[in-house]
């Protein structure tokens, strides 16, 4: 038996919004410590990893591990039926072929229950090693979203170069070129830790997709190391995260 209750549906809506552009379907792995999900996009260029520890939930019960295969389009449709300030309870019986979502209005005067059919999805799990990133940058999530949007105007490829002087995003195409550089700020909005400078090239459209997670967090963490995937991490309060990994482009 699995049961998890969140005081507000809004975060769940935001989490699904952050995933649904990159994934159509995915499996939530629920255990007594919380919920995990990991999936690659269709082209196998990026990977998204979601973690929600049980402490994130108002109520959390999971007697035995259960995997919930979900169609994110269908889940989005159900979440549209709820108000952001509704409480939501997700329930599934052991070996169930459906999941139940119950919404309760803030004043408790309205309840609505929906059932969603579960999918049997082939799960591919990748082992993500602990990586020591040569460059770790924290910046406002809205700033990162703005940079990704502005870069996309110029080119498909974005070069991210990080050194002690700052982090620089560059794109050049037929129209011209764009360079945006951020330096560390004294107030701490932007922090830049650099062991060794790194410069890598990435497909901009994936970066833009990752910024769908912007409403979830004030700050985004970016990790760069030579010849490893880029890390873009959005914390979910103190109880979890969405991490996106993006494979770098290599010279033709």
């Amino acid at each position: 038996m699995f049961e998890a209750r969140l005081a507000s549906t809004l975060t769940l809506k935001r989490i699904v919004d952050a995933l649904r552009e990159i994934l159509n379907q995915s499996t939530l792995d629920c255990s007594d410590t919380g919920i995990q999900m990991q999936a690659m996009d269709n082209s196998h260029v990026s990977l998204v990893s979601l973690c929600l520890r049980k402490e994130y939930f108002e109520k959390y019960k999971c007697n035995r591990n259960i995997s919930l295969g979900l169609d994110l389009k269908s889940l989005t449709k159900v979440l549209k039926c709820a108000n952001g300030d509704d409480a939501v309870t997700i329930k599934a019986a052991d070996k169930a072929d459906k999941v139940e979502l119950s919404f309760e209005s803030a004043g408790k005067e309205r309840t609505a229950d929906y059932e969603l059919r579960l999918l049997n999805l082939d799960q591919e799990h990748l082992a993500i090693p602990e990586t020591e990133y040569n460059c770790v940058v924290h910046m406002p999530a809205t700033e990162f979203a703005r940079i990704c949007r502005d870069m996309a105007t110029f080119s498909e490829s974005v070069v991210i170069a990080c050194s002690k002087e700052g982090i620089k995003f560059s794109a050049s195409g037929e129209m011209g070129a764009a360079n945006i550089k951020l330096s560390e700020t004294t107030k701490g909005e932007v922090s830049i830790q650099v062991d060794e400078p790194v410069a890598l090239s990435f497909a901009g459209r994936y970066l833009s997709t990752f910024t769908r997670a912007t409403p979830l967090a004030e700050k985004v963490k970016i990790g760069l190391a030579p010849d490893v995937p880029l890390l873009v991490e959005y914390p979910i309060e103190d109880y979890g995260y969405i991490r996106y990994y993006l494979a770098p482009k290599v010279d033709d």
Binding site: H44, V45, L126, A127
Partner: peptide, 12 residues
């Protein structure tokens, strides 16, 4: 050229 993410992480 774009590398696949699965060339960096091992399948388990």
């Amino acid at each position: 050229m774009q590398r696949g993410i699965d060339s960096f992480f091992k399948r388990v």
